[in-house]
Amino acid sequence: MATEERRRSSLRVEDPAREDFGDPADSELAARRAGDMRPFLPGIEPERRLNDWGRSERIEGAFDRTLYEWFYRYWFRCEVEGVENVPAEGGALLVSNHSGALPPDAPMIGKAIREEHSHPRPLNITVEHFFKGYPGFSMLIPKLGCVAAHPDNVQRLLYDEGQLVLVFPEGRKGSEKLYKNRYKLRRFGRGGFVEAAMRAQVPIVPVCVVGAEEAAPVFAQVGLAKRLTGLIYFPITPTFPHLGALGMLGYLPAKFKIRFLEPIEFDSEGMHEDKSLVQTVAHEVRARIQENLFEMVRTRKSVWFGW
């Protein structure tokens, strides 16, 4: 009866733990029984310049040495606190506030981990699916370590590959918000990021970024232009659109401060199925980030020179 049940559902439900296997090596067998596919991840081919996600160390390195370096060190003069809260190994989900027309916060967080952390690691930045469908962006964005914000992508990165993933739960609502709403966090999605961290059993590290709002203030959104260009939004900033596409990079020299908060750990399995727990944790993460943002803005002496 049991085998019949299994066969009946064989095309619909995948459960490698229940399947009967032949004569493989012991460690592999144990992994299969547990439904853990991590031993079967593809190996790294040293001849390749890209990884399986399309990330190019060469192109990323070129950006890192030039544009990112200059913005990080001289333009935004980034100040970093609590970088030791980012685990030195294993997966972790970094959750940050989001702002600025072409948001400068994501590359600066990545740069901060590369520069300040005792174990510099690559950071995978989740972005909207929109970027995969827009010519040009589609080519460049994955090379710089950006991955579409699909729950299965996040799960593979966090659980299977044990990498760092940065999410912005506010999504585009964060980066399209107007200057008058600065540092007021938007809704944190539907708590999907908490579910992802719980499912992968990795800690959440909340991150607060101050300065990005003033670096790229958005004064208005133009609905018609958005539709004509097919972009996700069309903001009016001090330099965009009148200075053209490069005006997107016309950031003002606001002083940045990036603060990594204490990680929130999830150790037991199956927590992600408890919707109320997920929502509670999501609210808690949002509250902590909001509280720290207000505290950082309150103590800031000058937008341009900082604390």
């Binding site: 995948e14 996600w53 699916h129 995969k132 579409a148 699909h150 299965d152 992508n153």
Partner: peptide
């Protein structure tokens, strides 16, 4: 499609 996962598993 634009909103595909990067790696399809058999259950998707």
């Amino acid at each position: 499609a634009q909103d595909d996962p990067a790696f399809f598993t058999e259950t998707m």
